[in-house]
Amino acid sequence: MNLFRLFGDLSHLASIFILLHKIRTTRSCRGISFKTQALYVAVFVSRYLDILWEWVSLYNFVMKVFFIASSCFILYLMKMKYRPTHDPSIDTFRVEFLVGPCALLALIFNYKFTFTEVLWSLSIFLESLAILPQLFMLQRTGEAETITTHYLAALGAYRALYIPNWIYRYFSEGVVDPIAVTAGLVQTALYADFFYVYFTTVIQGQKFELPA
């Protein structure tokens, strides 16, 4: 474990708590893409189900359980408790266009052609694109509540911090995970535009608004 990864994971944890806080305090899931959240459930369940047969560490186990549970809980909040506050008419990204190509990529690029390894690859590819429905929604509405932008910033920081972690591990352990690195670079790049607006507006105390 190095600091980049630790802070990356903590940032990921923070993003979940920010999202839960946003839903609770505003009693609404307005501005949150249900499709993105549903993709995260698929990502975490397919990747972290290995807790059933693989023991890595207590840290690893607790985090995996937390991410599976919290993503399912958020989906429950959106679908049941705060259902009326979710407007499907602006959450229109076509998810099937992501899942198909990701499944194909997972079949081609994996470390072993077994069910669990292909599933792992699929979860990595899917995670890298899972934020797209959310960013698409942001683009459509052109603005976001400040708390929602903090959620996205924490989520983006999580994957961004994994990049120095991989560089560090390459030099200290001599290991590279090309699938995770490639997907991670793509995922971080998707946030570039968001981060630019976030740092030039929200951090300066202004409202997050995209130029028309």
Binding site: M1, R5, D9, H12, Y48, E54, V56, S57, N60, M63, K64, F67, Y111, W120, Y162, R169, G174, V175, V176, D177, P178, I179, A180
Partner: peptide
């Protein structure tokens, strides 16, 4: 084998 997945990463 230097190319493999890191089982400890989340």
């Amino acid at each position: 084998e230097t190319l493999h997945r890191q089982k400890d990463e989340l």
